[in-house]
């Protein structure tokens, strides 16, 4: 009777031990460094201004991502349309909003009043309708939602389009030959099967948006980072307050990653091989 002994990967083990030592050394040197101001971090971690900034950051991320997904779906479908006008408009939108810095777009929306002093709703080329001064309509928060949402829509439409293209055309044919309209086939057959392709990059985008939303400080919105900046501009505890902001960003990212893996598992159920 032979006893089988698997080969030991000594190189891997040595590397793992050395890596653990390096990590411990790194953590100890950070924790022991008074310049990091851990006491100040603790003091401000649950500060009311930081919490309301965190709330705004989360709110902006979720709202702009919802807008991005809705716009992205619409523009993805438009970009794949057989009608030249429709697909060109969609592609022009994607080209413009991906081609200009989102920071510029934010400032642009914030200053919309300079271009169009009044916004009116009515029938074009007639004097039917209502008008309001742009500045009463475009608050910093609407400018932020518009800027980030429209920009996100352009990126999401490319993600959703790639998902739709990944679904075999035979699926749509089978659906239409069973009497489904194109719209029903899209919602019931094509989109659900595009989800496994769409979700990972969408999760990426959401986490990206969490941090991109910090750009709204330029239009004086008190998001998480801006709140931290406001505090350290008074007490000069720059590093500790940035650490506070980062801890909250990391917390939100962790939650979002967990959510993403849950959603991925849901849509992957038809890919499992066991019953």
């Amino acid at each position: 009777m032979l006893t089988y002994v698997p080969a030991r990967a000594w190189g891997t083990r040595v590397a793992a031990v050395m890596l653990s030592l390096a990590v411990v050394y790194f953590l100890v040197s950070i924790a022991g460094n008074a310049n990091f101001g851990w006491a100040v971090v603790g003091e401000y971690l649950f500060d009311a201004r930081i919490l309301s900034g965190f709330y705004l950051t989360i709110w902006l991320t979720l709202v702009t991502m919802v807008i991005g997904v809705v716009l992205g779906t619409v523009f993805a479908v438009m970009a794949m349309s057989g009608n030249v006008v429709i697909s060109t408009v969609a592609n022009a939108y994607i080209w413009f909003f991906r081609g200009t810095p989102v920071l510029v777009q934010l400032i642009f929306w914030y200053n919309l009043g300079a271009l169009f002093p009044e916004l009116s709703l009515g029938i074009p080329f007639t004097d039917w309708g209502v008008s309001v001064p742009t500045n009463t309509l475009i608050s910093p928060i609407t400018a932020a939602v518009l800027g980030l949402g429209l920009n996100e829509g352009a990126y999401m439409s490319e993600i959703i389009r790639s998902g739709l293209l990944a679904v075999d055309p035979g699926q749509r044919q089978a659906a239409t030959s069973l009497g489904m309209t194109a719209r029903k086939a899209l919602w019931r057959i094509v989109l659900p099967q595009a989800m496994p392709v769409i979700i990972p990059p969408t999760g990426n985008q959401t986490i990206g948006m969490l941090k991109t939303s910090s750009l709204v400080s330029v239009i004086s919105l008190s998001d998480l980072l801006y709140s931290a900046q406001t505090i350290y501009s008074r007490n000069f505890q720059t590093i500790p307050l940035l650490i506070v902001a980062c801890l909250w960003y990391l917390f939100a990212t962790t939650i979002l990653s967990w959510l993403q893996s849950r959603i991925e598992r849901h849509f992957a159920r038809s890919r499992n091989t066991s019953t």
Partner: peptide
């Protein structure tokens, strides 16, 4: 169809 085209998510 030749390639069955069953709905993969169902």
């Amino acid at each position: 169809f030749q390639n069955f085209n069953l709905f993969g998510h169902k």
